[in-house]
């Protein structure tokens, strides 16, 4: 006994057109979302403290070498003498 293979129901022309339109809108919505996220990210990065001075990509902030180092506390001279003798 042979079974006739079932074929899925084919959508008519109107259904196909409606589906095509919906897919187009969905694609546009997804594209819009991606653009929005991209634009938001760029604007937020540009507005941030990293900002235009550092550029789009983050890097270590420039070192400030002009800063003077704080004075070290005075050590115990007798101890340091002992240390030197050892």
């Amino acid at each position: 006994m042979t079974e006739t293979p079932r074929t899925p129901p084919q959508p008519d022309e109107r259904a196909r057109q409606a589906q095509k339109k919906r897919n187009l809108w969905l694609a546009l919505a997804l594209f819009g979302f991606v653009i929005l996220v991209g634009v938001t990210t760029i604007v937020r990065l540009a507005d941030s403290e990293l900002g235009p001075d550092v550029g789009f990509y983050w890097s270590n902030p420039p070192q400030d070498n002009s800063r003077s180092m704080p004075d070290l506390p005075a050590g115990d001279e007798s101890q340091s003498e002992e240390g030197r003798n050892k």
Binding site: R14, A15, Q19, K21
Partner: peptide
Amino acid sequence: MSHVETADMTSEAPRYATAGDYV
């Protein structure tokens, strides 16, 4: 597939969703 027979059984043609329906 995004079409269903209309709730109104007297109408013969099925209704297909448009972008306006999603709005």
